[in-house]
Design a protein around this nucleic acid. Structure first.
Lengths: 330, 330
DNA sequence: ATCGTTCTTGTAATCGTTTACAAGCCCGAC
DNA sequence: GTCGGGCTTGTAAACGATTACAAGAACGAT
């Protein structure tokens, strides 16, 4: 009454287990053999056990995608793209949340050695020596969506934040805004550092000084709201605002409204990531598209390619940004 | 140079594989044995292969959560709750997206027979005979987050939509709104049907007639926008609007604004799910909290309990709703 | 000193597949 | 008629762990 095994099918069909396996895997066999096996499989309702198969062939046909926060809509975009690529290649996708701590990321990468997935696609929010080391030593192929030192010797796909910042600043300046403020996420994160640098450079390119700068404790909606007093304390000195991601931008816009400031008339707001939230927010948020979908797609492709051939030289792909203009800017 | 196996550790430690396994699994052993094994494990950097372990013990320590659309923020809430419970119990969570088609759901449930997960937590959006049958016959324990006939003989955790609808209508009526419209999702879905019924009943309880009713093609932001003309064609006949979920509500609010209607002055809007989006939208959305987090938590607990004891009688839990009042209603 | 218990450890079977290898068969060519 | 080559199929050895069972050691009681 319990689950039939390949041996049961073989017995029922009056053939060997090897033949059953061959038929099931599409290896050459006579018409009659295929017929008999198929009949027995259908009769017993046999389904091969993927655990046993995994052990033997050394692959699980699972890939892991690790992100910091499933509540961040940018990961939804990325996840969709990754899922599409890997499922087309016959893999299941395991999505894990690491949280904001680098130690959890390291633990995750180390844990891959247990062999429950054939590859790891990680988008680390904080990077340290330990993480780089664990990635380099990881038993299974790893692709990083984000910025990690070249010495990690790993395939990476990253965004071009500075260029994205420049697009944002260009746009604001073109609309006549000169007093530009910046709300960053935590500066000790990889995206936080990149965006801070990008903002400074972009302003320099236009020979402008930052009107105000604040740093949220996290890349979340709540942190965006919480950071508002810091910026507003500077009182009306800015007429434009760039936020390090869409969640921060939306959080902050709520507080701008509460303070009686109208977007975009009083303050133009630009987010980053161009996630679904940018479109959904009100007013719809102009946002720097850092190519999350494309990054997800490219990263998934790199991972599949590396699983095929682990000897290939690591590639470092940079995806170029674009600007999605919506009504939060004039 | 390749990955060490338990045999390698045994050789290095000069003990048997059984002893290594016992030490690693915390079974009784002498101090000296533990010491020697531990030293060898550390020296070789041995990590047990979960594929082999899965085969032998018949468990993968993975659970699958299947939802229709990862872009729907209500699933983020649910996923967080599920993840918390299952990871505390030592399981990994595999999140899969089924899409809106029932055939894909059926395929997923059937596929569980392959044994890559120890249990399935599914939130089906459409339910038919096939799905019920596949759930009943599923090789691994299944818990349904949603409504499925009792004859499926499966643990379920569901929301109380009618009660939720009543809370929404009560609130609107208390605020003096009498001309209440309703934007549903597809009526051929389980939540769609439940909400439609709930809306009718709730109005009847207040002896009101529906001011307008429309049906979106999907539970998405885009579908909410697209449904606007249908409702607005009725022109100003409603002063309140209930939407079958938050995404629809937010989508529709964009169109209300475009049509020059102000929320909540001209139209009060109530969403359902009380997802993160409700808080993030502008104005913040009054929303019926259908207990997604609690449903996720309870469902995960049921699943774990059933894995422990598959003979227990199926339980059918109903989670009661509450109303989160925000600024989209007066 | 002998026996029986208890505790520790090792040997080997097992989980359900895949796959290397060998054996058997059929067929055409010599 | 025999032989070689190509197909098909079967036998059995993996994959890397867990665990039932047996054997050996230690020790106390008689």
């Amino acid at each position: 009454m319990s689950r039939p095994t390949i041996a049961g099918v073989a017995r029922a069909a009056g053939v060997s287990v090897a033949s059953v396996s061959r038929v099931l895997n599409g290896l050459p066999a006579t018409e009659e053999m295929i017929e008999r096996v198929q009949r027995a499989v259908d009769a017993l309702g046999y389904v091969p056990d993927s655990r046993a198969r995994s052990l033997k062939v050394g692959r699980t046909f699972q890939l892991t995608l690790a992100v910091a926060d499933v509540g961040n809509p940018v990961y939804v975009t990325m996840m969709r793209a990754v899922e599409e690529v890997v499922s087309a290649a016959g893999y299941r996708l395991v999505v894990t949340t690491t949280g904001p701590d680098v130690v959890d990321e390291v633990a995750l990468v180390r844990g891959m050695a247990r062999g429950y997935a054939d590859g790891l696609l990680i988008s680390p929010i904080r990077v340290d020596e330990d993480l780089v080391k664990s990635i380099r030593e990881c038993e299974v192929p790893v692709v990083v969506a984000g910025n990690v030192p070249a010495k990690a010797g790993v395939d990476t796909v990253r965004a071009n934040s500075p260029k994205g910042m420049l697009l944002a600043v260009d746009h604001l300046v073109a609309k006549g805004r000169r007093r530009i403020a910046f709300l960053n996420g935590p500066a000790d994160t990889v995206p936080g550092a990149a965006r801070s640098k990008g903002f400074t450079e972009a302003l320099k390119a236009h020979e402008l000084q930052p009107a105000a700068v604040a740093e949220a404790t996290d890349f979340t909606f709540a942190a965006g709201r919480a950071a508002a007093p810091d910026l507003l304390a500077a009182g009306g000195v800015f007429d434009a605002l760039i936020c390090a991601n869409d969640l921060l931008a939306v959080g902050l816009m709520h507080e701008l409204a509460a303070a009686g400031l109208e977007v975009p008339r009083d303050v133009a707001v630009v987010g980053m990531d161009d996630s679904e939230l940018a479109e959904q927010s009100f007013p719809p948020l102009t946002s720097v598209n850092l190519g999350s979908a494309e990054r997800g797609r490219r990263a998934a492709e790199l991972l599949l390619a590396r699983i095929e051939d682990n000897e290939r030289a690591p590639r470092r792909i940079v995806v170029q940004p674009s600007l999605s203009i919506r009504r939060s800017t004039p």
